[in-house]
Amino acid sequence: MTDRKPCKVCNFTRQKSYGLVVPSLDELKIKGCEFLGFTSTDTVKVVLEDDGTIVEDEAYFLCLPLNTKFMLLHERDTWSPVRRIDGGTAWMARDSVLLETDAVDSSSAVGPWWDLAQQLKQDLASIILMSEADLQTLVDAPCHELASALGFQVKKAEDLQETLQRVLDRREEERQSKELLQLYLKAVEKKDRQQEEPSQPSQGGAGDVDMLDGIEVDAASGFMSRTLMVLKGKTSPETRLSTEDLQMVVTRGVEAMEQVLGWDGARTSALVQACEAELTRRLQQVQALQSIRSITQPDSSQHSSEKSAEEEGEETPA
């Protein structure tokens, strides 16, 4: 009878580990699946936990030292060295792990994005837990190498990087909007306090004028602080301005706006043209609304006139 061999088994995340005593490699698979929570129908592969060597030969299994630690892998599971961070909850400890440089992973440690790619490969949903720095690292990764690490086609990796870039852009816009709202609320609060204390003149001089909403930042420009902040924004500022602000930008023209914004002629011209197009679009919307009203009003007016005529006709015989 074959002697029973004490050994250990774990899953690919190394979060579950159990000690077993088994007589054969097949028995290791059966008991390992049972302890690790796999079903009896699952196809598993046995590898050495320390270096990922695949163990398929029964004689090789019997020659291994006692208490050897094995890793059981599903079809989609992949072995990775201890320093690799998997998808589960291990992402929380990623920044505190001391990375080791050894011969096993020197060939695959191609960049700081590698661990993030392995994390995504195990659980794509973990992307929502990544910081902006992690997302930017993935965006900057070489597309072909990222595709290889994730097991994607190059086109799919490109789409992933474009999506991550859009997420970063949206977060930046949200941050700017939040900062703009905070500035606006502070300005309103300060203005309210000054209105409540009319007997106490402001001691700040011209420096306080710039912080008040509705007060000119620069006497020569005539623009409010909020308007200037929106104009200098990165994404479609013309869509976030009021019609009055758009009219002011278009009326001032390119040369005047160059001095206000401190931009070059080409950039300022593009902004003024965008504002003019947005203003035209809004005016067209107003005209369309007025046209719709003009179409419906005559019917109602004619109906009222006919009704009045009928009433007068009924009163005339009397």
Rank of each mutant, 00 (worst) to 15 (best):
L164E: 07
S17I: 12
F35M: 15
P112D: 03
Q284H: 11
R76Q: 10
D102K: 06
Q182G: 00
L116T: 00
L271C: 01
T137W: 09
D51A: 05
A141I: 08
Q247Y: 10
V217T: 08
V217H: 06
A147P: 08
V21Q: 05
L99I: 15
D102Q: 08
E75T: 02
T13E: 13
G253E: 00
F61K: 02
V44A: 01
D95T: 02
W79V: 02
I292T: 08
R252L: 14
R84L: 10
W79K: 02
E27W: 13
S107R: 13
S225G: 07
I292N: 10
G19Y: 10
V272C: 01
S301T: 10
P298Y: 14
A206S: 07
Q176T: 06
D3V: 10
T163G: 05
C7G: 00
R252A: 07
A220H: 13
D95I: 01
G37Y: 11
E172Q: 12
V286A: 07
R94I: 01
R226S: 09
E58D: 14
P298W: 15
V188K: 09
I54K: 06
K29L: 11
D192V: 12
A147N: 00
D210E: 07
E278Q: 02
E34F: 10
L185G: 05
L180S: 03
V249S: 03
Q15I: 13
S148F: 14
E310H: 08
D213T: 04
R14L: 06
Q285E: 15
